[in-house]
């Protein structure tokens, strides 16, 4: 009986965790595009107005960011104001949880067919690189190494700490503005 009661609680906790991580990741994508030249260089290739969505199938949590031009992203929350150009969709909440709790690398999740790509595959590859770069900044190295295929060799501690702090500050600001609004 106790197990039966705990199962829905665990599922609810997992759903809330994924929702929260999407909110953090979405804001962090906006932040890293304002902080890191490498990310800006990657994003600059995307067309201005390009809408990127990451979501859980069939109607689960989502994050939407828009490339506003010059390599900058704007976080739109969980729904897109216009048609999405690229959507990366987790087939199940459990798959999203594995990736967002850093138990499974994004590349491994692709290899395990946990996610579908709807849109230009070259843009999906680029967005994956941007997400990897972001994770390398905001996660402790030991956790980031579990999240990305290879921790960037040229990312040294001072740059990581400085950029990581800027990203977290930016994300915190966005949360404050969201609450005030």
């Amino acid at each position: 009986m106790r197990v039966k009661r705990l199962q829905p609680m665990a599922a609810r906790a997992r759903r809330r965790y994924v929702e929260a991580m999407f909110q953090v990741l979405g804001r962090a994508l906006q932040a890293v595009s304002e902080v890191d030249a490498n990310v800006q260089g990657e994003a600059r290739v995307l067309p201005a107005g390009f809408m990127f969505e990451m979501k859980v199938m069939p109607r689960g949590s989502a994050l939407v960011v828009e490339h506003t031009g010059e390599g900058r992203f704007r976080y739109h929350g969980s729904s897109a104001p216009k048609p999405v150009n690229l959507s990366i969709q987790f087939k199940h909440l459990a798959h999203a949880f594995l990736v967002l709790s850093f138990q499974e690398k994004t590349s491994v999740a692709f290899a395990h067919d946990r996610m579908l790509v709807d849109g230009d595959i070259s843009h999906a590859v680029r967005m994956t690189r941007i997400l990897n770069r972001l994770e390398a900044f905001i996660l402790p190295r030991v956790i980031a190494s579990r999240a990305v295929k290879q921790y960037p060799a040229n990312l040294h501690l001072p740059e990581k700490l400085l950029s990581g702090a800027k990203i977290y500050l930016n994300v915190a600001n966005q949360f404050v503005h969201a609450v005030r609004a």
Partner: peptide, 13 residues
């Protein structure tokens, strides 16, 4: 090549 879908599945970054 870096934008090709196959690169995701390469065992090394």
């Amino acid at each position: 090549a870096l934008d090709d879908g196959a690169i995701i599945f390469n065992p090394k970054e």
